[in-house]
Amino acid sequence: MHYNHNIVLVGPMGAGKSTIGRLLATELGLPFFDSDREIETRSGANIPWIFDVEGEEGFRRRETQTIIELLQEEGPIVLATGGGAIMRPENRAAISQSSTVIYLHTTIEQQLQRTAKDKNRPLLQNDNPRMVLENLFAIRDPLYRETADLIIKTDRQAPKSVVRLITKKLKKL
């Protein structure tokens, strides 16, 4: 199956956006980009460092610029966005205009399992990651839903099964 426009994956930390995005891109014959990796490559610094030096606001500015550039310059692509990218209206506008948006939905349990040992997630470096994830979910879930063309549950599913489900649904769109 060859797909001729951008696909953007949104969803919380640990939903599988990068893993599923990579497999989906291969399946569809499109290049894959991860906005967090691109930000690190372009700035020559890792995300925790950017958060420390520029704060979350500085990071979010870089994120918006990166997402807009990737969607305009590289297309068609599969793009995995950071969990918080959905918060900025300009990001929601950019991805909605130019892409099929897929919300990878997962439970807090799965997020905790998948992010437990990851030190590259500044928002979770505290005593109560569960509470942080629950609070982020409450704020972000309605925005993911509002922006998404498709909502796919990734809980207890192998990435390959999720990709099969997505390609089946893309054919129907």
Rank of each mutant, 00 (worst) to 15 (best):
54 E>G: 05
72 Q>C: 14
76 P>C: 08
56 E>Y: 09
102 I>V: 15
101 V>W: 07
58 G>W: 02
55 G>H: 09
87 M>R: 10
59 F>A: 01
88 R>Q: 12
82 G>D: 03
103 Y>Q: 12
94 A>Q: 11
96 S>Y: 06
85 A>M: 11
72 Q>G: 15
105 H>D: 14
51 F>S: 13
65 Q>S: 15
58 G>E: 06
53 V>N: 13
66 T>R: 10
62 R>G: 10
83 G>C: 08
71 L>F: 01
91 N>K: 05
69 E>K: 13
88 R>L: 11
111 Q>G: 06
64 T>F: 09
63 E>T: 03
61 R>P: 05
89 P>Q: 15
57 E>V: 10
91 N>I: 04
100 T>E: 12
102 I>Q: 02
116 A>R: 15
102 I>K: 09
67 I>E: 05
89 P>W: 14
86 I>D: 00
90 E>D: 12
74 E>R: 04
108 I>E: 04
76 P>G: 07
51 F>D: 14
99 S>R: 04
62 R>F: 04
70 L>G: 00
101 V>I: 07
50 I>F: 09
119 K>I: 12
81 T>P: 05
98 S>R: 02
95 I>R: 01
117 K>F: 07
68 I>S: 06
111 Q>K: 03
93 A>F: 04
67 I>Y: 06
108 I>P: 02
78 V>Q: 02
